[in-house]
Design a protein around this nucleic acid. Sequence first.
DNA 1: AGAGGCATTGCAAACGTTTGTGTAAAGTGC
DNA 2: GCACTTTACACAAACGTTTGCAATGCCTCT
Lengths: 330, 330
Amino acid sequence: MAATIKDIAKLAGVSPGTVSRVLANKVGFFSEYTGEKVRAAAAELGYQKNTAAAELVTQRSNVVAAIVNSTKTNFASPIIEGIQAEAHRHDLNVIILYAGDDDSEQQRRALTTVIERPVRSILLLSVDLAAENLALLQNSRIPFCFLSISFDEIQVPYITSDDWQVGYQATQTLLKLGHQNIGLAGVDSDFHTGRQRVAGYRQAMREAGITIQPEWIQLGNYSYDAGQMAMQAYGADSGLTAIIGGSDMAAVGVLNAARNLGYRVPTDLSILAIDGTEICELVQPALSSISQNFYEMGVAGVQQLCAPGELPQKITPIKLVERDSLQRNS
Amino acid sequence: MAATIKDIAKLAGVSPGTVSRVLANKVGFFSEYTGEKVRAAAAELGYQKNTAAAELVTQRSNVVAAIVNSTKTNFASPIIEGIQAEAHRHDLNVIILYAGDDDSEQQRRALTTVIERPVRSILLLSVDLAAENLALLQNSRIPFCFLSISFDEIQVPYITSDDWQVGYQATQTLLKLGHQNIGLAGVDSDFHTGRQRVAGYRQAMREAGITIQPEWIQLGNYSYDAGQMAMQAYGADSGLTAIIGGSDMAAVGVLNAARNLGYRVPTDLSILAIDGTEICELVQPALSSISQNFYEMGVAGVQQLCAPGELPQKITPIKLVERDSLQRNS
DNA sequence: AGAGGCATTGCAAACGTTTGTGTAAAGTGC
DNA sequence: GCACTTTACACAAACGTTTGCAATGCCTCT
């Protein structure tokens, strides 16, 4: 149906090889005259290159795939923007696949769609791969790198923030404001990221000489609901003066549930979010946050895959962004 | 490097053709015995199919591409979920491409990446294609369908809500609550969608016998900033008792700016959002909305592309979702 | 004039599949 | 035991490119 280089070759009266060289603009391999003739023929036929065929013979591709864990985590967007920007610089194209939340079957589908095709490399945004899927990925021999997620048990390349520091600095921030009874809401201690954040929180509290009450740590899956449930578990007279939300969404959940319980934020209760995505600015009061540099993570991910041999695990910096949800505890 | 069917063929002592048939599970074309032998060999070699090669010869593909306009519009997620779910049902794989906001160069890049590859069809989520890019798309002969965007000048397939009705019903909702001075904030009248919403608004006001003051309509690009700027333009004593946000984001912008101007929502000012994404539930007060069924749009998009010959323009239903941002005007 | 070099182009193999056609062996019915 | 069908497989072409190699013609130098 669609025009091929053979059609162009016939129309321009040259061989397919020559057409290929002209279209790839391999200077020095064709005369000005035939170059024009071929380009004219291509334009006339509305030629569209079949990249799949080209990739088949060249055995390389300029597509990088980003697999994201779900549409729910809103921090995916700055990462993707970072990936796009850096990929553009390296003349790469980006395709994105959704892998669902905890659905190992959907993960497998996303993974095989990219593995079965010539992609140059794979970036996994915060996707916690089931063991068999990780095996699939490693087996494929395609370079990959995890983003915004880290591991302790297994040895894989990843780029993320230092989650221990995230927990530690969040807690420190509140301690410095004079808070003592500090809750941690909505983190998932089943995985490395959450465990590290809890550990950082514990260490900061320990250094301050504060004994953590067990109910101060409310685990969850970083979601809005998790934040709400955590706050409900704390209740109307929790004794807490500050709460760290395990993610922005969790913090918003805490915020709204706290308001329903009669708390005023930040007067009665300070809330500190972790992530620092745009949602922090949308709610009232705007949530102060320990912010991760997601854009930078995306950039670093592409760079890492373009410069193999680099160290496979990298930490991006975090910083406190003050907005309106924190107050000194008097 | 990677194993091919030829390697399997050699190992299993059969021809590549037979391997292909076994792996494609073409029952009746091979004996139980060779089937086992081939599968064992494939497993041993860690074989991964090269789908690109297969697609080259079969001239068809099971990939559908979704091109989304930017990472900013948060309604993309339910549409994508709808696409994924329905695509799964048809045994299709989905890849997603970002096309930037108003960057025709980035649009072109996204478009060519999919056109140059064997994709079965293309869904464009709310992307307003530059003329030359539309030509590119149409020229490619790949079936496509626009989602959540409509056109009047050009004849292309699209699935969206009835934007005139959106504007009309939003206005009606507020009129029924006794409001008369109603603002419309952040819609973009440069394109069909925005024009229609404005037209619906005008018609409802006309029917109610209300003369619209020019400053009541504050145009913008549906963003949070657009909402904020609109509200700032209205000012602290606008005389308005209700405002329609052109999108959820715009409505949140209106909400926060209104609060800064001293308005209490909904006591002093009712706000009605258009779209009804999750952000409406996250802010306080939760925003009532004219909600679109984005998930359904995604589903319908895939169905439309799987059943060609169907009518190419479809309207998905809208509905009012009441939350906490509306109050009767007394 | 012969040798060598260069510019331009054609030829053909290769990439990893799918699938139509050919064919030998085995099975079936009389 | 013959003709016929079925089963199970091999063979080879094809998909649309890229690219190494060969071939041609022309130019330049000695």
